[in-house]
Design a binder for these strands. Structure first.
Length: 370
RNA sequence: GUGGGUGUAGUCAAGUGGUUAAGACAACGGGUUGUGGCUCCGUCAUGCGUGGGUUCGAAUCCCAUCACCCACC
């Protein structure tokens, strides 16, 4: 028995309604996972994150390794205790930072040598090291240390990075010890090439892991390209394991992902754009900075019952943002997270009732995608 | 009333005869997808208090005038 297990409850087309069990509780899927990179969902108290309905959050190996250091988190009693979050946690492996911190690192077969963005010091992240750090953090789901190819990238580059990702995955699996407390998810690469996606999937699925992610998407490619990749890529993954689309978080992508059989999503977008003054609402994005909201005393989203919408007006939120008040980040983050988590809840219900596509169309119409 | 000083965008200002008048803040608009982000990118003075004049050319020099500030009566 793995630490993390998946149960498929119902299907509506390819959309799946499922349940993931972990040492820290169960997760209803499809699920949206708020991101808390540095052991905090920025501008949010854990109680709030829980209250708005999030069942699992993400944190980050690379960032916690550099600061405060995984030994300290371990000494604190693990990440759950350290950050006061007793529900499931998924940690990313640091693979994506290798990609996003591009100019500060060198990739070799052994691993990735990089310079700290904090103080410039040199470090080496390898599959083994990533497992060690994630083990110290004590997260429920740990991710394989992969190499995320950029977009666009030529075939040879993508093929090499996918094959290295497989070799690294084998090393991750070998180094991963506490299989009864944490589960390792593999990551598919292969860029925008169908045969390479197939090759990557076959290689990682052969290792029989408790879950699989699709990586290398949402890296700047157009939406239709990503959907095209998802159209075939998801089918290369086993039905009885959770499928996680990494880094996806605009509402439309969530729907497209669920429609193609994905179960898990994460994204910094809701909290990041919140801090920069944008809200996601049922009627589409609202840029609270706009002058037209100066005297708009109505709530952000008329259909929303989150703490922010129940108690504050657009005019007030605009004022907070313009005045550089931290409540602006707090209130907008709360709303955006609630919006995505709540949308996922509605998606789950629609799958249960066999009307996912109807709900998708309804949502798109209101949001302004159609 | 006398002497001195200052007037450049909403604000603070650079510029002291030579191409389309720095910059910052504010304002306005946009971006953001496994977080190097309270961030990044755009737009924003046909005009330099006003009116004349000198000059090939004036925010820059001259005259007048107005406003404000500081001293002294």
């Amino acid at each position: 028995m793995n630490a993390v297990n998946y149960e498929l409850i119902k299907k509506d087309g390819k959309a799946r309604r499922g349940r993931i069990t972990t040492p820290h509780g169960t997760i209803e899927t499809p699920v949206f996972m708020p991101v808390g990179t540095a052991a905090t969902v920025k501008a949010m108290r854990p109680e709030e994150v829980k209250e708005l309905g999030a069942e699992i959050i993400l944190s980050n190996t690379y960032h916690l390794y550099l600061r405060p250091g995984h030994e300290i988190v371990k000494e604190a009693g693990g990440l759950h205790k350290f950050m006061n979050w007793d529900k499931p946690i998924l940690t990313d492996s640091g693979g994506f930072q290798v990609f996003s911190l591009g100019d500060l690192r060198t990739i070799t077969e052994e691993g990735v040598e990089f310079r700290s963005f904090i103080d410039g010091s040199k470090h080496m992240l390898t599959p083994e090291k990533s497992m060690e750090v994630q083990n110290a953090l004590g997260s429920d789901i740990i991710m394989a240390f992969d190499e995320c190819a950029p977009y666009p990238a030529d075939r040879d580059y993508v093929k090499n990075s996918l094959e290295r990702t497989t070799r690294w995955l084998k090393r991750c699996k070998e180094a991963h010890k506490d299989t009864d407390k944490q589960s390792l998810f593999g990551i598919m690469q292969g860029g925008m090439y169908q045969d390479l996606r197939k090759q990557s999937a076959e290689e990682i699925v052969a290792l029989d892991l408790p879950g699989y992610a699709i990586g290398g998407l949402s890296v700047g490619e157009p939406k239709d390209i990503m959907c095209e990749v998802l159209d075939y890529a998801v089918d290369y993954l086993p039905e009885n394991k959770p499928r996680y689309l990494m880094g996806v978080g605009t509402p439309d992508y969530l729907f497209e992902g669920v429609e193609r059989g994905l179960d898990m999503f994460d994204c910094v977008l809701p909290t990041r754009i919140a801090r920069n003054g944008t809200a996601m609402t049922s009627a589409g994005p609202v840029n609270i900075k706009n002058a037209k909201f100066e005297k708009d005393f109505t709530p952000l989203d008329h259909e929303c019952d989150c703490y922010t919408c129940k108690n504050y007006s657009r005019a007030y939120l605009r004022h907070l943002f313009k005045a550089n008040e931290m409540m602006s980040s707090m209130l907008l983050s709360n709303h955006n997270l609630h919006f995505l988590v709540n949308t996922m809840e509605k998606i789950r219900k629609s799958i249960e009732e066999n009307r996912f596509m109807e709900y998708k169309e309804e949502f798109y119409k209101k949001y302004g995608y159609l």
